[in-house]
Amino acid sequence: KRPMNAFMVWAQAARRKLADQYPHLHNAELSKTLGKLWRLLSESEKRPFVEEAERLRVQHKKDHPDYK
């Protein structure tokens, strides 16, 4: 399984919050909304998630050196 990218790291927590706020939204609508919200974030707001995704990528490479 591939490591999560920055969006997926962020969306993991954001999806729970959004689903709690809008329990009537279908998963497809949640995903579209999350995409729009992510694009509205500034680079500095995204930075911690980009850094975490990079950490996960490096760890994955270490754990699975033959993964392509």
Rank of each mutant, 00 (worst) to 15 (best):
K1A: 00
R2K: 12
R2N: 14
R2T: 11
R2S: 05
P3C: 02
P3V: 04
P3S: 10
M4H: 04
M4L: 08
M4Y: 05
M4P: 07
N5D: 06
N5P: 02
A6G: 00
F7W: 06
M8K: 14
M8S: 11
M8N: 04
M8L: 11
M8A: 12
V9G: 12
W10P: 00
W10C: 01
A11S: 05
A11C: 05
Q12R: 09
Q12T: 06
Q12D: 03
A13W: 03
A13M: 03
A14M: 14
A14V: 00
A14L: 07
R15V: 01
R15T: 00
R15W: 03
R15L: 01
R15Q: 03
R15Y: 02
R16P: 12
R16I: 05
L18W: 06
L18I: 06
A19P: 02
A19R: 12
A19N: 07
D20H: 02
D20Q: 11
D20G: 07
D20T: 09
Q21Y: 07
Q21D: 06
Q21E: 05
Q21L: 11
Y22M: 15
Y22Q: 10
Y22K: 14
P23A: 15
P23K: 15
P23E: 15
P23C: 09
H24E: 07
H24M: 06
H24N: 12
H24S: 07
H24W: 13
H24Q: 13
L25P: 01
L25Y: 05
H26Y: 03
H26V: 11
N27E: 12
N27R: 11
N27Y: 12
N27I: 12
A28R: 09
A28K: 11
A28Y: 11
A28I: 08
A28P: 06
A28W: 14
E29Y: 08
E29N: 12
E29Q: 10
E29M: 14
E29A: 12
E29V: 15
L30Q: 01
L30W: 03
L30F: 06
L30M: 03
S31C: 08
S31G: 08
T33G: 07
L34T: 00
L34K: 00
L34C: 02
G35P: 01
G35I: 02
K36H: 04
K36I: 00
K36E: 02
K36W: 11
L37K: 13
L37W: 11
L37T: 10
L37N: 10
W38C: 02
W38E: 00
L40T: 13
L40Y: 13
L40D: 15
L40I: 04
L40F: 08
L40V: 08
L40H: 15
L40E: 15
L41N: 05
L41R: 08
L41D: 01
S42P: 15
S42F: 09
S42Q: 06
S42R: 09
E43V: 13
E43Y: 05
E43W: 14
S44E: 13
S44F: 08
S44N: 08
S44V: 06
S44Y: 02
E45N: 05
K46E: 02
K46R: 08
K46G: 06
K46M: 02
K46Y: 00
K46V: 09
R47T: 11
R47Y: 00
R47K: 12
P48F: 02
P48I: 03
P48Q: 06
P48H: 12
F49Y: 10
V50F: 05
V50Q: 11
V50R: 11
E51Q: 07
E51C: 02
E52V: 00
E52M: 00
A53F: 04
A53V: 07
E54Y: 00
E54F: 01
E54N: 12
R55N: 07
R55T: 13
R55H: 09
R55F: 12
R55G: 10
L56A: 11
R57D: 13
R57M: 09
R57L: 10
R57S: 10
R57A: 12
R57T: 12
V58Y: 03
V58Q: 12
V58E: 11
V58A: 09
Q59K: 08
Q59A: 09
H60C: 07
H60R: 08
H60P: 09
K61V: 09
K61H: 10
K61E: 04
K61S: 11
K61R: 10
K62N: 09
K62V: 05
K62S: 09
D63C: 08
H64S: 12
H64T: 09
H64F: 11
P65S: 09
P65N: 12
D66T: 08
D66E: 13
Y67T: 13
Y67W: 09
Y67K: 15
Y67V: 10
K68L: 15
K68D: 02
K68E: 14
K68R: 11
